[in-house]
Design a protein around this nucleic acid. Structure first.
Lengths: 201, 201
DNA sequence: GTCTATACAGCGATAGAC
DNA sequence: GTCTATCGCTGTATAGAC
């Protein structure tokens, strides 16, 4: 492992556990037993370290997407979401400390929001398909359908923060992928609801 | 207005707008034209300023609750939630910067989580009442009901963060109180759903 | 209560030797 | 590439005069 990789890996774990604002270039350097001067040889500023990690995150998210096939089968949709959550969890400081990071590096905020928008449009696609297939209960209004998409993206983008509010047993992305899909259930007709319920519980 | 009050009020607005980690005692003092030494006469440390504001927040939340009557009528439940959101919005740095604050002052984390738990139990009470009154659709499982309570508390505690993910027009607590209750709708039977829909849209 | 002055620690970042 | 040494700055907090 190159020094550069060592720095990035240690930065992830320290940011995740101690908070982005509390970890300095000195801390990272000390944790992998190199000098602070050396760290600054590889990364001119702390912001560059963060940006590099954000780019890694983006690359992994996009790579995960490429392998996803276009099926909307339940199991595959859930598996795909689990995959995304796993990556988000790996880089969770980007979400738990998002305020700090966005204030430091506005470019990251912009790119992240664009990513969320993209995800939202993908979700809307699935919702529309399901609706056209008559899987929703009839009384659900158009407004409520749009709300469902909002609610999905809202939940996905907030889920890491939510780990703190929920019981310890639930602190994993596997649970959370299921949690997210539970949003879905009461919108479905009786038959579809039962089918999802079987998978999710 | 006493100097102490001036400090607290300015601290709220600066924390809300510039971020808790970026605002120092120097900034607050300068903004109200007193010396930093004077500020430290009133508040020994920055943490004490934050704790004082947190206590103010708690007091306001509890006061709002006392005036709430025990009716579970739709309009009153919505109005009550709006009231809570208004207070949360006033002290929004406690939520947007919660990670920073919780890491600085663990006691605040503990108290906040206890507050969330209390809110959750209140919500469960309403849900159970509604269920006993047969307002839910029949196919909703017990697990899904419990999920609904989780989802409510999750949304309420994350809502400030969500303002950043949503369109600009939606940046107000009035909208958000309605948004939160939309979660509710697909769980209800047709008649109840229509009644809520009328109020919320 | 309020001020000025200052101590002290820690941060990001750079210089220069090896 | 890696080190040591150091600069300049900012943050918290305190001392002592008024």
């Amino acid at each position: 492992m190159t020094t550069k990789e060592k720095i990035l890996n240690k930065a992830i774990s320290l940011f995740n556990t101690k908070g982005t604002e509390n970890i300095t270039t000195r801390h990272i350097a000390k944790a992998i037993a190199i000098s602070q001067g050396n760290l600054h040889y590889h990364f001119p500023t702390k912001n560059v370290v963060i940006e590099e990690l954000f780019n890694q995150f983006l690359a992994e998210i996009k790579k995960a997407e490429r392998f996803k096939n276009n099926s909307f089968e339940k199991e595959e949709v859930i598996a795909s979401m689990k995959g995304s959550f796993k990556i988000m969890y790996k880089y969770r400081f980007l979400f738990t400390d998002n305020e700090i990071i966005w204030r430091r590096i506005p470019k990251i905020k912009k790119t992240m929001l664009a990513l969320f928008d993209l995800k939202k449009s993908q979700i809307l696609e699935i919702i529309k398909l399901y609706k056209s297939q008559g899987k929703f209960r009839k009384e659900i209004s158009e407004e409520q359908i749009l709300f469902l998409a909002d609610q999905f993206i809202f939940t996905i983008t907030s889920w890491i923060g939510a780990l703190k509010y929920m019981g310890k047993r639930r602190n994993n992305y596997d649970h959370f992928a299921r949690f997210t899909f539970r949003i879905w259930l009461p919108y479905l007709n009786e038959k579809e609801m039962k089918a999802w319920e079987k998978i999710l519980w």
